[in-house]
């Protein structure tokens, strides 16, 4: 009986982690829809985690206010820095957003109010696993609506060819900034939920390696639809558990799986499924395939 409870407890944690990673992957994905590679999610996740934790610990606020505060702060910061940062393209944007996340981490590391390197302890554990699932479900629904909306099509158009999109009258700068803010709010809420799930946060959790892992989830799953990042995050969170018998060799299997999917399946996992189920093949992803970026803009 004890073993069974322990099994269920660890399974519960795994399900929570998969859902959380799926949310983070979606926050990277909304920027990728517009063809923008932003790795700022870790920074916004940290902002969300610290904001809601401090609002509850020091401000004595209820959990809901903590969540709102986290989302609002992250969204405002994103709107403020979005315009200058999003003038940059491709890898320049990627590295600048990494720099942003790193600066947030340094701030948390060196500001005593935020607990410094020791992190924050004693965060009220108010997150239930179903909160995270509900949040993910709402996001999937919103992405479903986005796909068929004017705004979603505009993002796709920017992703395909920004200059052409601009020529067609799409206010590219404003749309990109809005997508950046949406991505920030998504990541910040994920950070809050994670902080209140685990009782303790430290700056080390929000590092560069985590940021690129989230990007891997999205690309591994496929960038054609929002199911790709969700599926990729779930698959790669569960993969190490499935290959537990390989023990120390697990990271190699992880690396090899990612390599094989990226090399051989341009559509990611979702593309792979579509190949296996006849009749579901649709247009290729506008982000992952096709155009050589080098000649895109000058």
């Amino acid at each position: 009986m004890g073993d069974l409870l322990q099994f269920l407890a660890s399974y519960n944690y795994l399900a929570y982690l998969a859902a959380l990673n799926a949310i983070l992957a979606l926050s990277v994905y909304i920027m990728l829809m517009a063809g923008q590679l932003s790795l700022a999610s870790m920074g916004f996740m940290a902002i969300g985690a610290y904001t809601s934790a401090l609002l509850m610990i020091n401000g004595g606020m209820p959990f809901a206010v903590g969540l709102l505060g986290a989302a609002a702060l992250a969204g405002l910061i994103a709107l403020a820095i979005g315009k200058p940062i999003l003038r940059l393209k491709g890898v320049y944007l990627a590295i600048t957003t990494v720099g942003f996340s790193e600066l947030i981490r340094f701030l948390a590391l060196n500001w005593d109010y935020l607990g410094g390197a020791m992190g924050l302890n004693g965060i009220p554990q108010t997150t239930r696993t179903w909160h995270v699932f509900l949040y993910l479900a709402i996001l999937i629904f919103l992405f479903h609506r986005l796909d068929r909306s004017r705004y979603g099509r505009a993002l796709r158009a920017i992703g395909l060819d920004e200059t052409a999109a601009k020529t067609m009258g799409i206010p590219t700068a404003r749309y990109k900034t809005l997508a950046f803010a949406a991505s920030a709010v998504m990541a910040a809420l994920a950070g809050s939920f994670a902080a209140h799930y685990s009782f303790y946060i430290s700056p080390g959790e929000y590092n560069f390696s985590q940021a690129v892992l989230v990007l891997i989830f999205a690309v591994f799953g496929g960038l054609g639809t929002h199911w790709g990042p969700v599926l990729g995050a779930i698959a790669l969170t569960l993969l190490p558990e499935v290959f537990r018998f390989l023990q120390d060799w697990r990271p190699i299997i992880y690396g090899v799986s990612v390599l094989l999917v990226v090399i051989f399946f341009p559509g990611g996992l979702v593309g792979l499924f579509k190949l296996m189920i006849p009749g579901t093949r649709r247009k290729a992803s506008p982000i992952a395939g096709g155009k050589d970026e080098r000649h895109g803009t000058a």
């Binding site: 990007l215 690309v219 090399i263 992952a288 395939g289």
Partner: peptide, 9 residues
């Protein structure tokens, strides 16, 4: 394949 897939691979 553009610049994103090589980053991941």
């Amino acid at each position: 394949a553009g610049h994103l897939p090589p980053l991941v691979s």
